[in-house]
């Protein structure tokens, strides 16, 4: 007897989007980083697009699935790196939930992306400080992380904005 789980159209959409985000995360893993923790966060481009097209709930599903599946693929499930990703993602989702209510006439995905990037690094710093390295020494690196968040947040937001504004991509369902 086979067990059949009923899946909705939305489940399929979430799975497809999470798979795209996962692909970007894996590509990004191949890029060497000057400092552990400084990453472009390309998968967040998918989160931004999903947020604007399908809303916060679907975006939360996609990014949390990406963190979970990514940790299984990279082999760090329940390791410190996993909790760093998770705390960063949770905080940036909360920030996105607030940032999405900024007036759309003035604020676009670039603002959302920058705000989410700062929230992400804050979430990671909280875990680093409270659990991994409870010392002030890490504070020395915070400006570097913040600068990276600003730069990559802007770039990712601009990529997401131009992707969504491109008429050839309008009908493109990932």
């Amino acid at each position: 007897m086979s067990l059949r789980i009923e899946t909705t159209l939305e489940d399929h959409r979430i799975a497809r989007m999470a798979a795209v985000a996962l692909g970007l995360a894996i590509i990004e893993g191949a890029i060497p980083s000057p400092l552990p923790g400084v990453k472009p966060g390309l998968a967040n481009i998918v989160t931004l697009i999903v947020l604007s097209r399908y809303g916060w709930r679907v975006a939360a599903w996609v990014s949390l699935l990406r963190v979970l599946a990514g940790s299984l693929l990279f082999g760090n499930f329940l390791a410190p790196g996993f909790f760093l990703s998770l705390s960063g993602t949770l905080l940036s989702l909360l920030a996105l939930g607030l940032a999405m209510h900024l007036p759309g006439r003035w604020f676009g995905p670039v603002s959302q992306s920058i705000i989410a990037a700062f929230a992400h690094i804050s979430g990671q710093m909280i875990v680093v400080y409270l659990w991994l390295i409870p010392q002030a020494g890490i504070a020395y690196l915070i400006p570097v992380f913040a600068a990276a968040a600003l730069v990559f947040g802007t770039v990712n937001g601009a990529i997401a904005a131009s992707f969504m504004a491109n008429p050839r991509m309008q009908g493109f369902k990932v």
């Binding site: 007036p103 006439r105 670039v110 600003l150 802007t154 937001g157």
Partner: peptide, 15 residues
């Protein structure tokens, strides 16, 4: 072109 006025503001605050 896709960066809106408020986005520049967000960038400045970020800086």
């Amino acid at each position: 072109r896709h960066i809106k006025p408020g986005d520049w503001l967000t960038m400045c605050i970020g800086c």
